[in-house]
Protein backbone atom coordinates (compact mmCIF):
# COMPACT_ATOMS: atom_id res chain seq x y z
CA UNK A 1 0.00 0.00 0.00
CA UNK A 2 2.94 2.31 -0.54
CA UNK A 3 0.93 4.11 -3.21
CA UNK A 4 -1.10 5.78 -0.47
CA UNK A 5 1.71 8.30 -0.14
CA UNK A 6 0.66 9.65 -3.55
CA UNK A 7 -2.35 11.27 -1.85
CA UNK A 8 -0.65 13.49 0.75
CA UNK A 9 2.21 14.15 -1.69
CA UNK A 10 -0.25 15.33 -4.38
CA UNK A 11 -2.16 17.44 -1.85
CA UNK A 12 0.98 19.14 -0.62
CA UNK A 13 2.37 19.68 -4.10
CA UNK A 14 -0.85 21.10 -5.51
CA UNK A 15 -1.37 23.46 -2.58
CA UNK A 16 2.17 24.75 -3.03
CA UNK A 17 1.51 25.17 -6.77
CA UNK A 18 -1.71 27.07 -6.03
CA UNK A 19 0.02 29.51 -3.67
CA UNK A 20 3.00 29.86 -5.99
CA UNK A 21 0.89 30.64 -9.05
CA UNK A 22 -1.83 32.83 -7.59
CA UNK A 23 0.30 35.91 -8.20
CA UNK A 24 1.12 34.97 -11.79
CA UNK A 25 -1.72 37.09 -13.10
CA UNK A 26 -3.91 39.80 -11.69
CA UNK A 27 -7.57 40.47 -12.37
CA UNK A 28 -9.29 43.53 -10.90
CA UNK A 29 -12.24 43.34 -8.56
CA UNK A 30 -13.47 46.85 -9.25
CA UNK A 31 -12.61 49.49 -11.83
CA UNK A 32 -14.17 52.93 -11.46
CA UNK A 33 -13.64 55.89 -13.76
CA UNK A 34 -14.51 59.09 -11.90
CA UNK A 35 -14.18 61.51 -14.83
CA UNK A 36 -15.48 61.51 -18.36
CA UNK A 37 -12.45 63.28 -19.75
CA UNK A 38 -9.04 62.31 -18.45
CA UNK A 39 -6.78 65.25 -17.56
CA UNK A 40 -3.62 65.96 -19.58
CA UNK A 41 -1.36 64.73 -16.78
CA UNK A 42 -2.27 61.68 -14.72
CA UNK A 43 -0.24 60.24 -11.87
CA UNK A 44 -1.00 57.03 -10.04
CA UNK A 45 -0.43 55.73 -6.56
CA UNK A 46 -0.75 52.21 -5.20
CA UNK A 47 -1.96 51.56 -1.67
CA UNK A 48 -2.12 48.33 0.27
CA UNK A 49 -5.25 48.78 2.32
CA UNK A 50 -6.35 46.89 5.41
CA UNK A 51 -9.95 45.82 4.99
CA UNK A 52 -10.06 45.96 1.21
CA UNK A 53 -11.25 42.39 0.97
CA UNK A 54 -14.19 42.31 -1.43
CA UNK A 55 -16.08 44.15 -4.13
CA UNK A 56 -18.52 45.73 -1.67
CA UNK A 57 -15.65 47.18 0.33
CA UNK A 58 -14.00 48.30 -2.90
CA UNK A 59 -17.16 50.24 -3.68
CA UNK A 60 -17.06 51.74 -0.20
CA UNK A 61 -13.45 52.72 -0.81
CA UNK A 62 -14.48 54.34 -4.10
CA UNK A 63 -17.18 56.25 -2.24
CA UNK A 64 -14.70 57.54 0.30
CA UNK A 65 -12.26 58.92 -2.27
CA UNK A 66 -14.90 60.11 -4.72
CA UNK A 67 -15.14 63.49 -2.99
CA UNK A 68 -11.47 64.31 -3.53
CA UNK A 69 -11.05 66.76 -6.38
CA UNK A 70 -8.74 65.42 -9.06
CA UNK A 71 -9.44 61.70 -8.62
CA UNK A 72 -9.42 60.05 -12.05
CA UNK A 73 -9.86 56.30 -11.53
CA UNK A 74 -9.69 53.48 -9.04
CA UNK A 75 -8.75 49.86 -9.64
CA UNK A 76 -8.82 47.36 -6.78
CA UNK A 77 -7.33 43.88 -6.42
CA UNK A 78 -8.70 42.20 -3.33
CA UNK A 79 -6.31 39.25 -3.14
CA UNK A 80 -3.48 41.63 -2.39
CA UNK A 81 -5.70 44.30 -0.76
CA UNK A 82 -4.40 46.71 -3.36
CA UNK A 83 -5.97 49.95 -4.58
CA UNK A 84 -4.44 51.80 -7.50
CA UNK A 85 -5.68 55.37 -7.71
CA UNK A 86 -5.07 57.60 -10.69
CA UNK A 87 -5.25 61.33 -9.99
CA UNK A 88 -4.52 64.72 -11.43
CA UNK A 89 -1.30 65.81 -9.68
CA UNK A 90 -2.15 69.46 -10.13
CA UNK A 91 -5.26 69.02 -7.99
CA UNK A 92 -4.47 66.40 -5.34
CA UNK A 93 -1.75 64.15 -3.98
CA UNK A 94 -1.40 60.71 -2.35
CA UNK A 95 -1.55 62.10 1.19
CA UNK A 96 -4.89 63.81 0.59
CA UNK A 97 -6.29 60.64 -1.01
CA UNK A 98 -5.11 58.53 1.93
CA UNK A 99 -6.66 60.96 4.38
CA UNK A 100 -9.95 60.62 2.50
CA UNK A 101 -10.18 56.82 2.62
CA UNK A 102 -8.96 56.56 6.20
CA UNK A 103 -12.06 58.48 7.25
CA UNK A 104 -13.98 59.98 8.79
CA UNK A 105 -16.89 58.39 6.93
CA UNK A 106 -18.33 61.14 4.80
CA UNK A 107 -21.73 59.85 3.88
CA UNK A 108 -23.85 56.74 3.80
CA UNK A 109 -26.76 55.80 1.66
CA UNK A 110 -28.91 52.73 1.30
CA UNK A 111 -27.04 51.13 -1.58
CA UNK A 112 -23.46 51.70 -0.60
CA UNK A 113 -21.59 50.77 2.53
CA UNK A 114 -18.71 52.90 3.70
CA UNK A 115 -15.97 51.59 5.96
CA UNK A 116 -12.97 53.32 7.45
CA UNK A 117 -9.83 51.89 5.81
CA UNK A 118 -6.19 51.94 6.81
CA UNK A 119 -3.25 52.05 4.47
CA UNK A 120 -0.55 49.51 5.32
CA UNK A 121 2.78 51.28 5.56
Amino acid sequence: MKKVIVIPAAILLLILVAFATMGAYRVPTLVVEFVEKRPAVVASVEYTVDGLTCRGKSRGFAGMISGVEGIVSLTTYVRSNTAIVEYDPTLTDPVEIETAFEGPIVHEDEDEEYFPFKAKK
Binding site: A10, L14, A18, F19, M22, T53, V78
Partner: peptide
Amino acid sequence: YKTYTCAMNELHVALFVSLVALTFVTKKSF
Protein backbone atom coordinates in the same frame (compact mmCIF):
# COMPACT_ATOMS: atom_id res chain seq x y z
CA TYR B 1 -16.41 40.04 -17.47
CA LYS B 2 -12.64 39.68 -16.88
CA THR B 3 -13.17 40.66 -13.29
CA TYR B 4 -13.85 39.12 -9.90
CA THR B 5 -16.91 39.80 -7.84
CA CYS B 6 -17.52 39.64 -4.10
CA ALA B 7 -14.43 38.31 -2.29
CA MET B 8 -13.40 35.90 -5.06
CA ASN B 9 -9.82 36.21 -6.21
CA GLU B 10 -6.81 34.54 -7.80
CA LEU B 11 -6.15 32.28 -4.79
CA HIS B 12 -9.62 30.74 -5.03
CA VAL B 13 -9.15 30.02 -8.72
CA ALA B 14 -5.65 28.57 -8.16
CA LEU B 15 -6.99 26.33 -5.40
CA PHE B 16 -9.83 25.19 -7.63
CA VAL B 17 -7.45 24.34 -10.48
CA SER B 18 -5.33 22.39 -8.00
CA LEU B 19 -8.44 20.59 -6.80
CA VAL B 20 -9.27 19.56 -10.37
CA ALA B 21 -5.77 18.13 -10.80
CA LEU B 22 -5.96 16.40 -7.41
CA THR B 23 -9.31 14.82 -8.24
CA PHE B 24 -8.14 13.55 -11.61
CA VAL B 25 -5.19 11.91 -9.89
CA THR B 26 -6.64 10.75 -6.56
CA LYS B 27 -10.44 10.82 -6.96
CA LYS B 28 -12.26 12.75 -4.22
CA SER B 29 -9.40 12.48 -1.74
CA PHE B 30 -10.01 16.17 -1.01
